[in-house]
């Protein structure tokens, strides 16, 4: 069993299909919706955590892609210019998911992208503007 987070972007025409139903029934994947937004024109984005057998998740992702849903691992959508980070800690003040934390020995920033819930609070909170998250 593995757990992995994906960002899904739905084109307008996919709105009516019972996609999650198929993921659960056909691929035995447990789904946790962490964030969902709908934009004008019926486009939508989701942050999903998929839990299941590794090969089933791969199949599920392929199924979604075949349904014209863009489905990418969360990590790929988070851009962090780590080299420029000064370890000030400002971003950790707002990250309630615990993805951004200070190492209490070295006082360097640690970023565990797999814990991110795309609240996007770190984007304005970083005084160097080192984060970009591609959710839409």
């Amino acid at each position: 069993m593995v757990k992995k987070r994906y960002i899904l972007n739905f084109p307008p025409e996919s709105g009516d299909k019972p996609l999650s139903y198929h993921l659960v029934r056909d691929y035995d994947i447990r789904i946790n919706i962490l964030k969902a937004e709908v934009y004008p024109g019926k486009r939508g984005s989701l942050l999903l955590e998929l839990q299941g057998k590794k090969e089933n998740i791969e199949k599920g992702v392929k199924y979604l892609t075949d349904q014209h849903v863009v489905c990418e691992p969360l990590e790929k959508r988070i851009h962090f210019e780590e080299k420029k980070c000064i370890d000030c800690g400002n971003c950790t003040a707002v990250c309630f998911a615990g993805a951004l934390t200070m190492n209490r020995e070295t006082w360097k920033l640690e970023f565990d992208k797999s814990k991110c819930v795309v609240c996007e609070l770190c984007i304005p909170a970083c005084p160097l503007h080192l984060f970009e998250i591609d959710f839409k």
């Binding site: 000030c88 800690g89 200070m102 360097k108």
Partner: peptide, 9 residues
């Protein structure tokens, strides 16, 4: 708590 100055630096 969170720091806003860099102890590492």
């Amino acid at each position: 708590t969170a720091p806003v100055s860099s102890l590492a630096k």
